[in-house]
């Protein structure tokens, strides 16, 4: 005990103990290793395998060349234009899907007859791959922006719509009854009970749709586009600029992660009351 006290006072005179700092750094390193160790090992393995020639560097160029291609693309602004047009396509489609899917889902979930009448056709549409319908959309809307946006919209609409309907239908009727005992009318019950209760379910749909939006974006840009990140993947491959191709692929992964991150943050803010966020 006495020893500890004297030790403390010495420590106080010398400022923060270097050992404490080391232990802290060690802990942070350990946590990062636990979380991202495998990812780092994957990239390190790729780099080594490619430079050592175990992997064909023509197909899998070393990571540093991919990184420099990404940097060149971004700093010259060439890839920035692609990102902008891709985000615009996915963004318009996603916003339209949200703007139509959520209100329609809230409405359909409330009125059983409407929901029952529309459910079979919704299930059919949902099971029909949007990509299979892309040729139809091209025929209808041409090869320009409209068909690209529309195919993404189509694919993102259903997860949002179905999740919203599900959320509304699963609201505990006991809570609705409770609100009624206080004299809440239909509108108040909807606004104060049904809507907030559906938010977690709606977010499940939003996150699913965001992933789908990027997936469809790439597919749409690979067919008949001359701009966009998806186009860049194909174009770089045609021109055998493999590092650029990987740079565009990683860029798409980052876009997906960023979209998901935004939605998770938004969900945390709106659903502070709930413990489940993932």
């Amino acid at each position: 005990m006495t020893y500890q006290i004297s030790n403390e006072s010495v420590r106080a005179q010398r400022g923060p103990d270097i050992r404490v700092a080391l232990i802290r750094t060690g802990r942070t390193t350990r946590r990062l290793t636990a979380d991202y160790g495998l990812l780092i090992a994957f990239f390190a393995g790729w780099q080594i395998a490619s430079t050592a020639g175990w992997l064909n560097p023509a197909v899998f160029p070393p990571i540093d060349r991919v990184a420099s291609a990404l940097w060149t693309g971004l700093s010259s602004g060439a890839l920035v234009d692609d990102i902008a047009i891709s985000l615009q396509r996915a963004g318009i489609a996603f916003a339209a899907a949200v703007g139509i899917g959520i209100p329609l889902g809230l409405f359909m979930g409330q009125i059983r007859a409407v929901e029952r009448a529309l459910d079979p056709i919704l299930q059919l549409f949902r099971q029909t791959s949007a990509l299979a319908l892309y040729p139809v959309f091209i025929l209808l809307l041409g090869l320009g922006e409209a068909s690209k946006v529309f195919v993404i919209f189509w694919a993102t609409l259903f997860p949002i719509l179905l999740a919203t309907i599900g959320g509304v239908k699963e609201v505990d009727p006991k809570l609705i009854e409770m609100a009624r005992t206080f004299g809440a009318n239909r509108l108040t019950t909807f606004r104060r009970v049904v809507l907030p209760a559906s938010v977690p379910s709606i977010f499940v749909g939003l996150r699913l749709s965001a992933t789908t939006a990027l997936l469809l974006l790439i597919a749409a840009e690979m067919i008949g586009a001359n701009k966009g990140v998806g186009f860049q993947v194909m174009n770089a491959q045609y021109n055998f600029r493999i590092p650029l191709m990987f740079a565009a692929i990683f860029l798409l992964a980052f876009l997906g992660l960023a979209a998901n991150w935004v939605l998770v943050v938004l969900q945390r803010r709106l659903c502070r009351w709930s413990t489940a966020h993932h």
């Binding site: 006991k174 809570l175 009854e177 409770m178 104060r192 009970v193 907030p196 209760a197 938010v199 659903c271 009351w273 709930s274």
Partner: peptide, 9 residues
């Protein structure tokens, strides 16, 4: 009611 029926949000 028997259940508190609180709004979790």
């Amino acid at each position: 009611f028997q259940e508190p029926r609180l709004l979790p949000w």
